[in-house]
Design a protein around this nucleic acid. Structure first.
Length: 189
DNA sequence: AGGATGATGGACT
DNA sequence: GTCCATCATCCTA
């Protein structure tokens, strides 16, 4: 049973409030009959028309329209012509708010991720790396992550004990907004 | 350990 | 033609 109301509730409200709620949740993909599960530890909020750094700043286009779809819709775009990055649409439908999945830890299917990444370390500590490890590509744009019938989906997880907010990475505008959220290391060592 | 750079596609000026 | 919500590699120290 994927897509309980709990996940939908998490995506309600301004993205800078919804984004940290995704920390600890799982992003899962089954591609080529292989499943990889990521525990999300790093996200960024992009606030549509109010956010000059957002792809949705100038309104819907053919590329970004998934961010204007129902909350929980996956927005995948190609970055620098080479990588893919994955976002989750948030807020009310039609507003263009979204949450970029920047990183996490592989908690299932690690051998698959290692093969896809071509290395054994730094498997998913960046948005392009996450997509490569989970084999998320343009074909997955527009899928509904909270429904039961998608090759990519979200599952509830455990809330991290501590969340740190910092400025977003790799942008040139609205650099001052502390809308990057990182899950601090939980207990144990 | 850290800075520069090339790869490469699509949206926008 | 220019600007990227990036990453891996190739430098210099």
């Amino acid at each position: 049973m994927r897509g309980t109301g709990a996940l939908e509730e998490m995506l309600v409200g301004p993205p800078e409030e919804a984004a940290p709620r995704l920390l600890g949740c799982h992003l899962v993909s089954t591609v080529g009959d292989e499943t990889v599960k990521l525990r999300i530890s790093e996200v960024e909020a992009y606030k549509g028309p109010d956010d000059p750094a957002s792809h949705a700043f100038r309104g819907p286009t053919n590329r970004n329209r998934s961010m204007f779809a129902r909350p929980g819709t996956l927005y995948v775009y190609r970055s620098y012509g080479i990588h893919h990055c994955a976002n989750v649409a948030a807020g009310p439908e039609g507003i263009g708010w979204g949450i970029l999945i920047r990183g996490g830890d592989i908690v299932d299917g690690q051998p698959v991720a290692v093969r896809r990444r071509g290395r054994t370390a730094e498997l998913s500590d960046g948005p392009g790396k996450v997509c490569e490890a989970l084999a998320i590509a343009g074909e997955h744009d527009g899928h509904y992550l909270l429904g039961g019938d998608s090759p990519v989906w979200l599952e509830p997880g455990t809330t991290p004990g501590l969340v740190v907010a910092t400025p977003r990475v790799g942008i040139t505008r609205a650099k001052d907004r502390p809308w990057r959220f990182v899950a601090a290391v939980s207990a144990s060592s």
